[in-house]
């Protein structure tokens, strides 16, 4: 086995790992606090990537779509500013979703929650196709990603963009941990995640706290979409497959464990690059199959994943 090639593949995989980790984190934050799998997370994230794209390109009628034309600022934003705008917009969408669609349902059945998120997925997907067209768009690179833009370690190339994505992800994570540990809202959120009813009894306002959770999660989703839009091309179905990887990562790590989402994303990202490289049948396009199989196996054998809480069902 060619060790340099292996190292190269690992470096390449790290980029995707960061994306899967952040989307998986979004899924885990919501599952942990609300107990639902947000199937629309990927589409909500893609939507914000389009927002970033609109902010970047300024007012061009065909591009912005009629519905949003009035809201677009006159001057194109710079890339970091556009991403911040998109993340804020994603957070607003997430918070609104919780407030308008999830909270009024109360503790509804699994079926109702699946219906809401699938409805949201379908609606957002065709909304994007209608406003921005189905053709792929080239999203500008955020980090220098030209031919020579890489570190060379032991003969393998580690791209600046990979390093950049990890720096962004880790710094946002640190920010998140600080917020959770050192603010009242963070404390309230941790309490609600452990037990909503107990948190309510000691005076935590559960509803608004969950809304912050959704905003946070959707912010992560938006970040994942903006960071990956350059490498996978921006189109309405962009995050559909990424969603499977992210769900596989979250399941592998344990659906209610943020640490698990990070580790799971890392493992799934690596396997997505390494398995097709050494198993010719899988190839690039089918690399989503091992992720799905891994997900099924984990749910069958160890539903709690690596770090998740084991659920004991009372019968």
């Amino acid at each position: 086995m060619d060790l340099v090639l292996l190292l190269q593949r690992v470096f390449d995989a790290l980029f995707n790992s960061a994306i899967y980790s952040s989307l998986a984190l979004a899924l885990v934050i919501i599952f942990r606090s609300t107990g639902l799998l947000n199937f629309a997370q990927g589409e909500m994230a893609t939507f914000t990537a389009y927002i970033a794209f609109v902010l970047l390109s300024g007012p061009q009628p065909r591009l912005t779509g009629g519905g949003l034309a009035g809201l677009v600022p006159g001057v194109p934003f710079t890339i970091p500013l556009a991403i911040v705008g998109a993340v804020l917009c994603g957070m607003a969408v997430g918070a609104a979703t919780e407030r308008v669609l999830i909270r009024p349902l109360g503790g509804a059945s699994d079926l109702a929650l699946v219906n809401i998120t699938i409805g949201l997925l379908l609606a957002t997907n065709s909304l994007m196709a209608q406003w921005w067209g189905t053709g792929p768009r080239i999203f500008p690179a955020i980090f220098p990603s030209g031919a020579g833009q890489h570190f060379t370690i032991l003969g393998a190339r580690l791209r600046y963009s990979t390093v950049g994505v990890w720096i962004v992800l880790l710094s946002v994570l640190v920010l998140l941990i600080v917020l959770l540990r050192h603010t009242r809202t963070g404390l309230a959120f941790r309490a609600v995640s452990i037990s909503p009813s107990n948190a309510e009894l000691v005076g935590v306002r559960v509803g608004p706290t969950l809304m912050y959770g959704w905003a946070m999660a959707s912010g992560f989703g938006a970040l994942a979409a903006c960071l990956s839009a350059n490498s996978v091309l921006l189109e309405p179905n962009m995050m559909l497959r990424v969603l499977v990887y992210a769900f596989a990562a979250a399941t592998l790590g344990g659906l209610d464990s943020p640490k698990g989402a990070l580790v799971g994303g890392l493992i799934i990202g690596l396997s997505q690059t390494l398995i097709p490289a050494y198993v010719p049948f899988i190839g690039f396009e089918l690399s989503v199959l091992p992720a799905l199989l891994a997900m099924v196996l984990i749910l069958l054998i160890r539903p709690a994943g690596l770090y998740g809480t084991k659920r004991i069902e009372r019968v």
Partner: peptide, 15 residues
């Protein structure tokens, strides 16, 4: 886009 209407319909009917 019937997918859009159905997405919205799914949400509205669930409520």
């Amino acid at each position: 886009e019937s997918a859009f209407v159905f997405g919205v319909g799914l949400i509205v009917l669930t409520f």
